[in-house]
């Protein structure tokens, strides 16, 4: 039934493109009838009996029938459970206000750090970076961040140490970096040793041995956004030859 969508997987679609589903002309009498449901991810919307595209990007598919549009947008919309890099903008009472690049600031309670108690407050200053995940991400409520997982462990989250550079890339690049076998990441690993923190909100923090190397990595990642794999590898190779 969803063959019309399925056959366009991997193609670039634009807002306004639509798929219509007509009833199948042949119905098998013997095969058991399965009700097929399609799950629409970002960029796809149901409109009556049609499926309308409202973001430009590449149509992706995941078995059995999840479809979404892989776009290069930069605006971040919080989603529950996603880890982000935020900047602490204010301390008010027992919560911190954190800017994460969304439409609203999120709140982060000082008790949601590992090992924090009423007595033992975490050392967070205004302007510090935190790596946290969303506990509440709801369009009607203030988003809420935590720096612990469900078992109370930090699990990599918390306040950043000194040094390093923060910069912004598109959300598409962030997802590519965080994918299980990311090719950009494996290319980058061959370059310099560096610490990299990737937030789902499009912010990347990088720290390397020297300022020069940090700058190189930041610029490479920002330019890798619009490159093909071949161009990127060529560039990385050039940098590697120039650097050593």
């Amino acid at each position: 039934m969803f063959s019309t969508v399925r056959e366009r997987v991997g193609e670039v679609l634009l807002p306004g493109d639509e798929f219509s589903f007509e009833a199948e002309e042949k119905i098998s009498l013997t095969a058991p009838v399965k009700s097929e449901k399609v799950v629409c991810g970002p960029g796809l919307r149901r409109c009556g009996d049609r499926l309308v595209v409202f973001k430009s990007g590449v149509l992706r598919h995941k078995e059995p029938n999840v479809f979404w549009i892989d776009s290069q947008q930069r605006r971040y919309v919080p989603a529950k459970g996603e880890s982000i890099i935020g900047i602490v903008t204010a301390k008010s009472g027992d919560v911190f206000k954190v800017d994460f690049g969304g439409s609203e600031q999120a709140s982060l309670s000082y008790l949601t750090f590992e090992g924090a108690t009423k007595r033992n407050r975490p050392n967070v200053q205004v302007g510090d970076l935190v790596f946290a995940q969303f506990l509440i991400a709801n369009k009607d409520m203030e988003p809420e961040l935590v720096c612990i997982d469900s078992s109370g462990r930090a699990n990599g989250m918390g306040v950043f140490g000194a040094g390093g550079l923060l910069f912004r890339v598109s959300l598409g690049l962030v997802r590519r970096l965080l994918a299980p076998h990311s090719d950009i990441r494996s290319d980058l690993e061959q370059l310099f040793p560096c610490e990299l923190v990737v937030g789902m909100n499009g912010r990347i923090w990088v720290k390397s041995a020297t300022v020069q190397q940090t700058l190189i990595i930041a610029n490479l990642l920002q330019s890798a956004e619009t490159m093909t794999a071949q161009q990127r590898q060529q560039l990385f190779r050039k940098v590697q030859q120039g650097a050593f």
Binding site: I87, T89, D99, G101, Q125, G127, D128, L129, F160, A162, G163, G164, L165, L166, W205, V211, Q212, T214, L215
Partner: peptide, 19 residues
């Protein structure tokens, strides 16, 4: 968007190194 402390420190350090 506020400027984080780490960006500020990094920028000043980079400028000191003429980068």
């Amino acid at each position: 968007t506020p400027l984080s402390n780490c960006e500020r420190d990094f920028l000043l350090k980079a400028i000191e190194e003429k980068k």
